[in-house]
Amino acid sequence: MTITIDTTRCIGCGMCAYAAPQVFRVVGKYSTVISQPEGRRDPKVSNAENGCPVNAISVTR
């Protein structure tokens, strides 16, 4: 699984960091991926992706 964040869309609201703090962190004005989960899809990452208000998170398998 590879997680990316489109910083042209990200508004730094922190929802992703709240949903999956082991994967996301807000640094400055944007969210960043601090670790790429290995193995199968993490439901917390799915919650962050689905809950992003500007659809800035992309998860590929």
Rank of each mutant, 00 (worst) to 15 (best):
G28D: 11
A20F: 06
A19T: 05
G28S: 10
R9D: 08
I57P: 11
I11V: 14
T7A: 06
V26N: 02
I5W: 04
A56F: 04
C10V: 06
V27F: 00
P43A: 07
G14A: 13
I3W: 03
V45W: 02
V26K: 04
N47I: 09
V26L: 02
K29V: 00
F24T: 07
A48D: 11
F24W: 08
Y18G: 05
S46Y: 01
I3M: 08
M15A: 13
Q36F: 07
Q36S: 04
C13N: 09
C10S: 01
G12E: 08
C13T: 04
I5V: 15
T7P: 00
N55E: 14
T2N: 14
K29N: 12
P37H: 10
R9C: 01
Y30K: 15
S46R: 13
I57N: 12
V27M: 12
K29L: 11
C52W: 10
K29T: 11
I34E: 10
C16H: 06
E38I: 05
K44I: 00
Y30I: 01
T32L: 01
T32P: 00
D42T: 11
R25E: 15
E49L: 11
E49I: 10
P37V: 09
A19Y: 02
C10T: 03
V23H: 06
G28P: 02
P43K: 05
R41L: 15
I57R: 04
G14R: 02
C10F: 03
M1L: 13
S31E: 04
S31K: 01
K44C: 08
R9N: 00
R41S: 13
K44F: 14
R25W: 00
R25P: 00
R40Q: 13
G28H: 09
M15D: 06
D42A: 10
